[in-house]
Design a protein around this nucleic acid. Structure first.
Lengths: 131, 131
DNA sequence: CAAATACCTATTGACATAGTAGGTATATAC
DNA sequence: GTATATACCTACTATGTCAATAGGTATTTG
């Protein structure tokens, strides 16, 4: 359900929070510390920088920093940006075509409820809870 | 996260509960009513009969029946039998090899908590809630 | 005996996952 | 001002899963 993209993104965020001090953290160091592929991490980060969760500075001495306090990163945001979709069933995904059986569907409320308990849980956790 | 196997299984259970009366419900009829492939449904049902949630009678006049009251089927059981795995991350799957980083892992409690809210939700719903 | 049913196993096309690979742009350090 | 270190970008690939389709066998009833 949650792929390596989301899980690695979380580990990267924790690593940066732990190691940034007042400088920038090169992803090469994160990859080494976490035992993950640098090239793969490079594919996972763009959505996080594009949406302003991280700032990335190019060039020698560059790297990544958080842009907020750890308590202001909710897991719902991090995982929404790195996972394809968090909805438990296809018909609840964003941009999904309307289900033709929707009117008669006896299960939709059940799946919506499941979607809600997951989203609520992810909203309740922040990056600060991992430090 | 939840595939068609689990979703169809639920629809089949509801359909049988609704239509069984005091006889047996042929899967062909269920497939027609639900607009699903009979051949596909036939692949989904075996775990449910093997574990005694349904009884299947072969031969003319045969079909399927529930073996319990609808209120005694929890969604956790139905989905556990029809889905590969409900765990949100690989390291929590049944039979998964122990994670080598487990001791130092800062995220495991978070994923375990997510696993729990999902399982609790599924436990709270029974087949009777769909009728 | 014929028909209807559950039950079993193999195959397939499409797609997602988890990377690998190679390159470009940009800023710093010397 | 050149080499170096970094972020950033795009293409490719091997593997596996999903969602069926397909064709058959076993069993019971009418």
């Amino acid at each position: 359900m949650i792929s390596t993209r989301g899980r690695y993104a979380l580990r990267v965020m924790i690593d940066i929070a732990t190691n940034q001090g007042d400088g920038y953290v090169p992803m090469k160091d994160v990859a080494l510390r976490q035992g993950l592929s640098l090239k793969y991490l490079e594919q996972i980060l763009p959505p996080l920088t594009k949406h302003g969760l991280l700032i990335g500075i190019q060039g020698k001495g560059g790297g990544y920093r958080l842009t907020r306090e750890p308590k202001d990163y909710h897991m719902s945001e991090v995982l929404n940006l790195t996972e394809k979709d968090l909805a438990p069933v296809g018909c609840l995904k964003e941009g999904a075509p309307a289900c033709e059986r929707k009117g008669a569907c006896k299960t939709i409320a059940f799946w919506e409820g499941m979607d809600k308990v997951i989203k609520d849980y992810l909203e309740s956790y922040t990056l600060a809870d991992f430090l």
